[in-house]
Simulated assay, not measured.
Amino acid sequence: MLAWMQEAAKMNPFSSPFMSVKCQALENGARPLIPNRNIVAASVEESDSCEFGSNKYFLLCGLGGILSCGITHTGITPLDLVKCRIQVDPQKYKSVFNGFRVTFAEDGTRGLVKGWAPTFFGYSIQGMFKFGLYEVFKVQYSTLVGEEIAYEYRTSLYLISSASAEFFADIGLAPFEAAKVRIQTMPGYADTLRQAVPKMYIDEGLTGFYKGLVPLWMRQIPYTMMKFACFERTVELLYKYVVPKPRSECNKSEQLVVTFAAGYIAGVFCAIVSHPADTVVSKLNQEKGATAGQVLKKLGFGGVWKGLGPRIIMIGTLTAAQWFIYDAVKVWLRMPRPPPPEMPESLKKKYGLA
């Protein structure tokens, strides 16, 4: 019992995750689970709570995704609400500040948080699959192609792994996203998730929950591919050219600062790449019986870029916060956190760099 209580005390969320670490290379010729990714040793005082690439590791990654996406998306519900309303009714909601002012005047403070419940549940489910399956696919694909190809084509590896994960994540998100958009953009339709779900089922059946799935894939898969690939490569470049010391010499708080910076840079690109499809999703869920092609034709080229400014602010901050929380959860749970990839010795010899 005493040992269990000591372990629980170590894992409590109020203890500081920023403990000094000692990064060591693999010894005794041990082979890493992911080619070319040496496991970072945990703190001097503690060992890792799980083995890298184990089922427990992947489950904890999923938990990190739940906290990362659920908390951040719910926290920016007011900005998301105004962004959606600008997309579907730009005549009434002319800008971000105007949108906040009009919404507050009509619905008060409570009106600014409309749709928080489907946002929280939908993006928690999406985050679990997005981050958890990304780690799974990255390990599996790396093992499949071998360490040399995994290193030389690592950007492609990140893109394929993230796209595979997001495909499944959006299936879980779609029903909640459909309910959220209706709550936020259709006055009088419903005020809560409990009101919206039965009404959607009566009006449109099960198909109503998934009519926006394909546009959601069009929005989220490019977004996630950019989010993960840009983040991974930005982290690599920051440690190589910006951070004045090697990652192995950075403490965990310094590593989390790098994580946040790389996440924000990735978020800006994510917003631009995925915005047209985001506009189509918002408009599609507002108009009954419309198809993605009809909505796209009606909006035109200029229409699909409405609300890009607030979305860059929203997605940049959101992506940075998500990566920060996800990495902080790994620190808190004492999970293995491999450093950026390095060229394997076989490739160094092949290119005469050994």
Results as ranks from 00 to 15, higher is better:
residue 169 A to C: 07
residue 205 G to W: 05
residue 24 Q to R: 04
residue 244 P to R: 08
residue 126 Q to S: 14
residue 206 L to N: 03
residue 194 R to F: 14
residue 346 S to V: 11
residue 28 N to Q: 13
residue 205 G to H: 04
residue 322 Q to N: 10
residue 332 W to S: 10
residue 23 C to Y: 10
residue 177 E to M: 15
residue 277 A to E: 06
residue 35 P to S: 06
residue 63 L to G: 15
residue 57 Y to H: 13
residue 192 T to K: 10
residue 143 T to F: 00
residue 144 L to T: 14
residue 347 L to H: 06
residue 12 N to I: 00
residue 193 L to T: 07
residue 2 L to V: 07
residue 313 I to C: 13
residue 72 T to A: 10
residue 164 S to A: 12
residue 102 V to H: 05
residue 245 K to N: 05
residue 29 G to K: 09
residue 224 T to A: 15
residue 319 T to G: 11
residue 153 Y to A: 15
residue 87 Q to T: 01
residue 300 G to C: 10
residue 30 A to E: 15
residue 309 G to N: 11
residue 190 A to F: 11
residue 232 E to L: 09
residue 191 D to Q: 10
residue 59 L to N: 03
residue 135 E to M: 15
residue 3 A to N: 15
residue 221 I to P: 02
residue 76 I to S: 07
residue 18 F to L: 07
residue 53 G to R: 02
residue 99 G to A: 06
residue 341 P to F: 05
residue 13 P to T: 02
residue 292 A to Y: 09
residue 179 A to S: 14
residue 10 K to Q: 03
residue 98 N to P: 01
residue 137 F to L: 03
residue 238 L to M: 09
residue 138 K to V: 00
residue 189 Y to D: 01
residue 242 V to S: 07
residue 85 R to A: 02
residue 128 M to I: 05
residue 292 A to I: 08
residue 64 G to S: 04
residue 140 Q to F: 03
residue 247 R to Q: 13
residue 112 L to P: 01
residue 29 G to A: 11
residue 305 W to H: 05
residue 151 Y to N: 02
residue 313 I to P: 01
residue 214 V to K: 08
residue 99 G to M: 09
residue 347 L to V: 06
residue 74 T to N: 04
residue 196 A to D: 05
residue 98 N to R: 10
residue 327 D to E: 14
residue 274 S to C: 13
residue 159 L to E: 12
residue 98 N to C: 02
residue 191 D to L: 06
residue 106 E to F: 06
residue 154 R to N: 12
residue 118 P to H: 11
residue 195 Q to C: 09
residue 108 G to C: 06
residue 155 T to E: 07
residue 99 G to P: 05
residue 182 R to Y: 03
residue 351 Y to N: 06
residue 233 R to C: 03
residue 315 I to V: 15
residue 70 G to L: 04
residue 263 G to A: 08
residue 163 A to S: 13
residue 332 W to G: 01
residue 102 V to A: 01
residue 74 T to C: 10
residue 122 G to D: 07
residue 341 P to H: 03
residue 326 Y to W: 08
residue 119 T to H: 14
residue 344 P to L: 04
residue 26 L to F: 03
residue 325 I to V: 12
residue 133 L to V: 02
residue 150 A to N: 03
residue 132 G to N: 06
residue 279 T to H: 14
residue 135 E to Y: 13
residue 90 P to T: 01
residue 180 K to F: 02
residue 296 L to N: 02
residue 19 M to I: 14
residue 163 A to M: 12
residue 149 I to H: 06
residue 159 L to N: 12
residue 166 E to I: 05
residue 270 C to Q: 13
residue 221 I to F: 07
residue 55 N to D: 11
residue 207 T to R: 08
residue 190 A to L: 02
residue 311 R to G: 00
residue 79 L to N: 06
residue 170 D to I: 09
residue 168 F to I: 15
residue 132 G to S: 07
residue 132 G to D: 10
residue 334 R to I: 00
residue 111 G to S: 09
residue 158 Y to W: 14
